[in-house]
Design a protein around this nucleic acid. Structure first.
Length: 595
RNA sequence: GGAGUGGUAGUUCAGUUGGUUAGAACGCUGGCCUGUCAAGCCAGAGGUCGCGGGUUCAAGUCCCGUCCGCUCCGCCA
């Protein structure tokens, strides 16, 4: 029986306090640092709760002192001794700084190679190295605390939904059927069925709806989802959703229960009280006013559409050309115009807008006596200037940014400039939480490449009931019972009231260009199920990873996923994906393609 | 698929107009040191300049290609 069998850990290393002086302590952990003074040796021993200073006195225990002398950074030790006060030598910078453990017995449990980077906060080691040694990076407190928080958040989630609101936590398959709509599937070849593939779930959408048909009433799952699309700082190929579905509900019921949930999470995780109900705005309002369907509402800075004022009346070529071609002109008015330099106008703004297709950013400064300067100044008549001023509410010192292009370019570009300006003006307050529901999304958007309608949310989303008639006459104008929950410019989740009638479901499939045959083949089981007594139902899915990003203040999803992928969807630590041997190819009835 | 940016000791970086033996800090190793906690002092080890090709008397440096990390666009129902 070794040390571990004989001595049970008394508490986490970071929890020792002055009140425990005189008690016996058993500690386990990693060597954070050692300081050998020739006589006395100090070792800071770390675990996930923090670290405590161990003291080794040659006059107290020769053997322990001798062993301590060998220990190095990141070795794993066990030690036993008495908690003693540090007297005059307290360290006010650490929670355990008033005490130390005078060690009677020590055991080396594991030696360690020198790590490629130091295990402490605030390192600037590149991500390549940190991802390769992810298990070491995770030892660092600032990363470690994200996962302690994540565990707490999932616990709150289960308690709220299953413990207090009658949800059942149910599991759905990971190996499922590939569907044509939406993101690219990750495929898994079947050994038993040559040429056939499973798909990993993009989300368990159909299964959770089928659970409603099954009478489960309220479903919750913290589930892994997979999408084979290119990555971003806030997008990983596998990610975790808090997936929910409820029977006999309308959108209001879902808003109600979800805002109760986020209020609970923000209160318990951050001590922040959210004001309920959460504000709402429609998709159209969001696009018009902020150029974006997930606006950051911590600040206002609205966009203003000048198309109607300018149409047919403006001679300024840049605007006139765009308007003739059916484009729009929008403006972003910045009252604090002097916060932005000529370099911003010539360089920063155009560079920020360019990726979204903007060919330029026109501007005008409002000087003394209301005089305009800048490229747009001469392009507008006195009359037009006055109308624009009235619409924007300009004043001396103001700056107007104009963007003229097709609507999608104007909204994306000016929406981006709104954020750039807000950042410059210090309006992105990290302690402020601007939640909102974005509602009334269009049912369809037109896919120009394929020249067809595609479901904007997904094809199981119910149209607004008062728009059912328009499915035949004007599908482009049909609004869906779909909603997103946004926070500070982040899409935290989205959902909808679903179609529970098989005839409506069939109609939607046909509108997005799925023939009856295809619909049968891909979703036949689902259409059949809808015919056996389907309760009206709806749901939502929240991105757990994104929520943790917000709560922990992380810049990247990688900081809240224990073992994340790189931008090329590889794991630098395990080196996946990898080639497999010929036998595996053969078993799966596959041949490598030779081009 | 596209744009940008980076890649030099274990780590973070410097490296001039192409020119001697590629430097610094931290870390690491050894020694000294009984109150440190970013310990201190002394000594030392440590390099495929991402990879491949080219130009040149000479390439970390210039050119071409390529790989990888990150950010963004497209994509992500």
């Amino acid at each position: 029986m070794g040390f571990i069998g004989q001595h049970k850990r008394t508490q986490g290393n970071g929890n020792y306090r002055i009140g425990q002086v005189g008690q016996q302590a058993v500690v386990y952990g990693w060597v954070q640092s050692y300081r050998d003074h020739g006589g006395v040796i100090f070792i800071d021993l770390r675990d996930r709760t923090g670290f405590v200073q161990l003291r080794f006195e040659p006059s107290h225990q020769v053997e322990a002192h001798k062993i301590a002398n060998m220990a190095r950074t990141e070795w794993v030790l066990a030690a036993r001794g008495e908690v003693i006060a540090r007297g005059d030598n307290i360290n006010p910078k650490i929670p355990t700084g008033e005490v130390e453990i005078l060690v009677d017995e020590i055991e080396i449990l594991s030696e360690a190679l020198t790590p490629p980077f130091e295990i402490k906060d605030g390192i600037d080691t590149g991500e390549t190295t940190r991802l390769k040694y992810r298990y070491l990076d995770l030892r660092r407190p600032e990363l470690n605390r994200n996962f302690v928080a994540r565990s707490k958040a999932t616990q709150i989630t289960r308690q709220y939904f299953c413990g207090e609101h009658d949800f059942l936590e149910l599991e759905t398959p990971i190996l499922m059927k590939s569907t044509p709509e939406g993101a690219r599937d990750y495929l898994v070849p079947s050994r038993v069925h040559p040429g056939n593939f499973y798909a990993l779930p993009q989300s368990p959408q159909q299964f959770k709806q089928l659970l409603m048909v099954s009478g489960m009433d309220r479903y919750m799952q913290i589930c892994r989802c997979f999408r084979d699309e290119d990555l971003r700082a806030d997008r990983q190929p596998e990610f975790t959703q808090i997936d929910l579905e409820m029977s006999f509900v309308c959108a209001e019921d879902i808003y109600e229960i979800l805002q109760g949930y986020v209020a609970r999470v923000w209160r318990e995780m951050l001590g922040v009280e959210l004001q309920l109900p959460l504000p709402r705005l429609t998709y159209t309002e969001a696009m018009d006013k902020y150029g974006c369907d997930k606006p950051d509402l911590r600040f206002d800075l609205p966009l203003t559409d000048l198309t109607e004022i300018l149409r047919g009346r403006v001679e300024f070529r840049v605007f006139a050309d765009v308007l003739e071609r059916g484009g729009i002109v929008k403006a972003l008015y910045l009252a604090q115009g002097d916060a932005f330099t000529r370099k911003d106008l010539d360089r920063t703004f155009p560079q920020e807008a360019a990726p979204f297709g903007a060919k330029g950013v026109a501007w005008a400064r409002i000087g003394a006596n209301g005089e305009w300067s800048g490229p747009v100044a001469k392009g507008l008549t006195d009359e037009l200037r006055a109308e624009v001023e009235a619409k924007l509410g300009t004043a001396e010192g103001g700056l107007i940014l104009f963007l003229a292009d097709k609507a999608s370019v104007v909204n994306a570009s000016l929406g981006r400039l709104r954020l750039v300006a807000a950042e410059r003006l210090g309006l992105l307050d990290p302690t402020k939480w601007a939640f909102a529901w974005v509602t009334d999304f269009p049912m369809f958007e037109h896919d120009e490449a394929e020249n067809r309608f595609v479901a904007m949310h997904h094809p199981f989303t119910s149209p607004r009931l008062d728009h059912l008639d328009k499915l035949d006459t004007d599908p482009g104008s049909v609004l869906a019972q779909a909603y997103d929950l946004v926070v500070n410019g982040v899409e935290l989740g989205g959902g909808s009231i679903r179609i529970h009638r098989s005839d409506v479901q069939k109609k939607i499939f046909s509108l997005i260009g799925l023939s009856d045959e295809e619909a049968r083949e891909k979703f036949g089981f689902f259409l059949d199920a809808l015919k056996y007594g389907t309760p009206p139902h709806g749901g939502i899915a929240l991105g757990l990873d994104r929520m943790m990003m917000l709560i922990t203040g992380s810049d990247s999803l990688r900081d809240v996923i224990a073992f994340p992928k790189t931008q090329k969807a590889t794991c630098l630590m395990s080196e996946s994906p990898n080639v497999v041997d010929d036998k595996q190819w053969a078993e799966l009835h596959l041949l490598p393609r030779r081009d």
